[in-house]
Computed example of a mutant assay.
Amino acid sequence: MQKYYITIDWMEEKGKIRLGISVGDLNGIGCEVALKTFEDSRMLDFCTPVLFASSKSMAAQKNALGLNVTYHGIQKATEAVDGKINVVNIWKEVPELEFGKSTKEGGAYAIRSLKAAVKALRDNEIDVLVTAPINKNNIQAEDFKFPGHTDYLAKELEGESLMFMITDGLKVGLLTDHVAVKDVAQAITPQLIRKKVRTVMNSLKADFAIRKPKIAILGINPHSGDNGLIGKEDEEVLKPTIKLLNDEGNLVFGPYSADSFFGSGSYTDFDAVLAAYHDQGLIPFKTLSFGKGVNFTAGLNKVRTSPDHGTAYEIAGQGKADHSSFKEAVFAAINIFRNRQEYEELTANPLRKYKKKAERF
Score class of each variant (00 low, 15 high):
P133L: 11
A333D: 04
N250W: 09
K355E: 04
V128C: 10
K214C: 03
I126Q: 02
N86C: 03
N301A: 08
G228V: 10
G83N: 07
V87K: 10
F331N: 03
V184Q: 14
V118E: 10
K205G: 00
V197W: 09
S55I: 02
I217E: 09
L121F: 06
L121K: 08
G107H: 12
G20C: 05
G228H: 12
A206E: 10
K195D: 11
L19R: 02
F146D: 04
K356W: 01
V128Q: 00
L245D: 08
K195G: 04
L175K: 07
A258D: 00
E79I: 06
E344Y: 14
L174H: 12
N89H: 03
D82P: 05
L153N: 09
A53H: 01
G159C: 13
H149T: 13
P307A: 14
G317H: 00
D183N: 11
T199Q: 01
N301L: 01
T131E: 01
E359L: 05
E314Y: 13
A180Y: 08
P147M: 04
L244S: 15
S257K: 12
Y152W: 10
K243R: 15
S324N: 02
E39M: 11
G169H: 06
S41P: 04
E96W: 05
A206C: 01
T103K: 15
I17M: 05
D271P: 10
D127C: 07
N246S: 01
Y277W: 14
D259H: 03
T103N: 15
Q186W: 02
Y109G: 01
A216L: 07
A80V: 00
E98G: 04
F331I: 02
T287N: 05
K357W: 00
V50G: 01
V81Y: 02
S41T: 06
Q318K: 15
I8Q: 14
K205Y: 00
G15L: 13
L153D: 05
F146Q: 08
K212S: 11
E39D: 01
A132F: 02
V197Q: 07
